[in-house]
């Protein structure tokens, strides 16, 4: 398992409008592309060979499964920001402002009063 690499996925996709669009429209294709050609990049010339996603991490990212990401200890800020980008607008139109953020919190209610999974790597 690589919390670092999951976070790298969230970080690199959230900051790029084109990757974000592809992550919304066809998440499986985007995640697979990311693993091949974006995740390994250190910079425009260098690549790293040392990181990989597990099967579970890949499926969680493909499924936009922010509950599982929370439980894996992916960074809360990266998760919240990217899924707000994917869902906030349509939720706001249908259910009003902050409805996505509130549903997100509601799906994590079973963690109330418990120690959260650490985001430390």
């Amino acid at each position: 398992m690589s919390k670092y690499y999951v976070n790298k996925f969230l970080f690199t996709v959230d900051r790029d409008p084109e990757l974000l669009r592809r992550y919304k429209e066809d998440p499986r294709s985007l995640v697979l592309t990311w693993e091949q050609s974006i995740g390994p990049k250190l910079n425009d010339a260098e690549t790293s060979t040392v990181n990989f996603l597990t099967d579970k991490e890949r499926e969680v990212l493909i499924n936009h499964d922010y509950v599982a990401l929370f439980e894996m200890g992916a960074h809360f800020f990266l998760c919240l920001t990217i899924y707000i980008a994917l869902y906030d607008e349509e939720y706001t139109k249908k259910h009003g402002p902050l409805s996505f953020q509130r549903e997100y919190g509601a799906k994590l209610q079973h963690w109330l009063g418990r120690e959260y999974p650490s985001v430390a790597i």
Binding site: F70, F76, L80, Q101, Y104, G105, L108, L112, Y116
Partner: peptide, 10 residues
């Protein structure tokens, strides 16, 4: 402050 957790946006 809570971000991305069960106590957010209350």
């Amino acid at each position: 402050l809570e971000l991305g957790g069960p106590r957010q946006f209350q």
